[in-house]
Design a protein around this nucleic acid. Structure first.
Length: 546
RNA sequence: GCCCCUGUAGCUCAGCUGGAUAGAGCAACGGACUUCUAAUCCGUAGGCCGCAGGUUCGAAUCCUGCCGGGGGCGCCA
């Protein structure tokens, strides 16, 4: 059991002595921001004082007295502060235990959770129409979805990545018509696609090819290649058309009818989504007999629920109005809304040197995601897309991310990793071998910079958990920045080896570096960013990754 | 008009499941390379947390209203 758990248990026991029965989860233990407030702190006395109608400081002193009888491990001092906080000052040894835990768990198991219980989760993301290349805005959803999938995996879920392909319907028809028109030098339809790529792809298309099938495959290949450049791979490319062929769409409609969730009006078939909190009922089948976008998508979600117990969708901000109707449809089919989690990413505004670059797919002046990757590199692209909360809109400045290394934190984090490798390599070259951890005296680690690294490592499991629950990989990005900063400080303050460093210190610091490496690799992997072992910079200041 | 996101340092943003003195990066200024990579480190300065109420022992965080910014409100996808 870690310190946190044993402290909470101790508090629980102390409360029982005062005939107060609180559950483990009711007792909050926090890491205070101010070091003067100790290593851990609880507000439990404040929280219960109201219902007991007692003075919180009196309660705190009674709880503290009961705690002191138990003398919990690592606890050096217990203090009451402010309105009634109970602060625990711990011996440094608790952090030395953290080091051992981290190294024992390793990259594989530190900050890994089993809360998923191998439950199947499908993360659906990107799902861009196969009507043209992915643009820069898709990058955010792509990086987010992939990172969320990695987070779920780390929390013990069995994850599949799904890409839903709208390979039928109006937009597809317009795309194919545009492509065919361009190929035969005819006028592109009024609402058609007019981007540069239409011309390029039309020129590639063999004369005898079926524009529909060829155009569809061409767009899919474009998507696949771009995503692979970001190291993103899908388990399922799910075709909308396939559900027409299999009858799944009609089955879905029948299921909705059986659930009394549809009605006919004005010659159209409607989903009674207002029954489940939507502002309007929604058309499923138009009066001309064609499906709207909604019905096949409902069928697709029905299919996903056949394959998994929980679903996560990553949608763009323009789809937010769609959440209610999809939840309504799933409720009608007997699923729980909380089993379909929908993350909305706010807009990405692409800029180049402060000048806005338009994202529109139909102006013909698009910036493709592949161009972004080419310009800034996969690592910088992923890190940048995952830097902000998805609730904030993002200005992604290509020039800044590609060139101004100082404003670009990805290199800062990767450099910390490269430095660790350099320490390992150089110490080996100096003839130092790392002795087993069990034979290493960690108590020499007492410099604030050393202890700060261990404190931060101790927090990573919590960060991972919250990141997953909140669909918020940016917490990982921010943790990795803060952690890299702590490592760089340590690097400066504490030399690992050299003439004036005794061998026991060298040994302990080598293990500290190893623990730091584990933390960095885990966090970078969750972001899908590489962890280079060397990074050098040439004389012009351009970065070169090794 | 309705719905979603948002407003925190000059700029870009964390922090929001209520906690103690609100943080980081960049920009500005001043320091640190004979030593494991200076892509680094240390320091200084910089804040009515949009505004006004409310709840609370305690509010950047929760609630209400207002103001500003972005997005969405089709038998389009």
């Amino acid at each position: 059991m870690d310190v946190r758990g044993s402290l909470i248990e101790a508090i629980q026991k102390a409360l029982l002595e005062l005939t107060l029965d609180l559950s483990f989860d009711e007792i909050k233990l926090e890491r205070p921001a101010n070091p003067d407030h100790g290593d851990w702190s609880t507000n439990v006395a404040l929280a219960i004082s109201k219902t007991l109608n007692r003075n919180p400081r009196d309660l705190a002193s009674e709880i503290t007295a009961a705690l002191e009888h138990q003398s919990p491990t690592h606890v050096e001092k217990i203090e009451i502060a402010g309105p009634g906080f109970i602060n625990f000052k711990l011996e440094d040894s608790w952090l030395h235990d953290v080091l051992t835990e981290v190294v024992d768990a390793g990259i594989e198991d530190w900050a890994r959770h089993q809360i998923g219980g191998n439950q199947k989760v499908i993360v659906e993301f990107v799902s861009a129409n196969p009507t043209g290349p992915l643009h820069a805005g898709h990058g955010r959803g792509a990086c987010l979805g992939d990172s969320v999938a990695r987070l779920y995996q780390r929390c013990g879920y069995s994850v599949q990545r799904d890409f839903y392909i709208n390979d039928r319907g109006t937009q597809m028809k317009l795309y194919v018509e545009s492509l065919a028109a361009k190929a035969s030098d005819k006028e592109i339809p009024v609402d058609g696609y007019k981007g540069e790529y239409i011309q390029e792809w039309a020129a590639e298309m063999p004369q005898e090819a079926d524009p529909f099938e060829w155009g569809y495959q061409r767009a899919l290949r474009s998507h696949r290649e771009t995503l692979e450049a970001l190291n993103i791979y899908f388990d399922n490319w799910f075709s909308e058309r396939s559900m027409v062929d299999s009858g799944a769409i009609e089955e879905t409609l029948a299921d909705l009818r059986n659930a009394d969730a549809v009605f006919d009006s004005d010659g159209a078939v409607w989903l009674r989504s207002t029954n489940w909190g939507d502002d309007k009922d929604r058309v499923l089948v138009k009066s001309n007999g064609e499906y709207t976008y909604l019905l096949p998508d409902v069928a697709y979600h029905r299919n996903k629920f056949e394959r998994a117990e929980a679903l996560v969708n990553v949608w763009g901000a323009d789809h937010h109005g769609y959440i209610n109707r999809m939840h309504a449809a799933m409720s009608a089919l007997g699923h729980k809304p909380e089993d379909l989690k929908i993350a909305i990413t706010q807009m990405v505004r692409l800029q180049r040197g402060g000048q806005e670059v338009k994202l529109s797919k139909r102006t013909g002046d698009i910036v493709e995601l592949s161009e972004v990757i080419e310009e800034v590199g996969s690592d910088a692209a992923r890190f940048t897309y995952l830097l902000l909360s998805v609730d904030s809109s993002q200005n992604f400045d290509l020039e800044l991310v590609a060139q101004q290394v100082n404003e670009n934190p990805v290199f800062y984090v990767q450099y910390a990793h490269a430095r660790i490798h350099s320490i390992m390599k150089k110490s080996q070259e100096a003839g130092i071998t790392r002795s087993p951890l069990s034979e290493t005296n960690l108590s020499v680690l007492n410099h604030p910079s050393e202890l700060a690294i261990l404190r931060s490592l101790q927090e990573l499991p919590t960060v991972v958990l919250r990141s997953t629950q909140e669909v918020a990989p940016h917490r990982i990005t921010n943790w990795s920045r803060d952690f890299a900063s702590l490592f760089h400080s340590f690097y400066h303050d504490c030399r690992v080896f050299g003439e004036d460093i005794d061998s026991s210190t060298t040994q302990a610091r080598l293990w500290l570096a190893e623990a730091a490496r584990i933390g960095l690799v885990i966090s970078l992997d969750l972001l899908g960013v590489s962890a280079p072992t060397e990074m050098w910079r040439d004389e012009e200041g351009e970065e070169i990754n090794g």
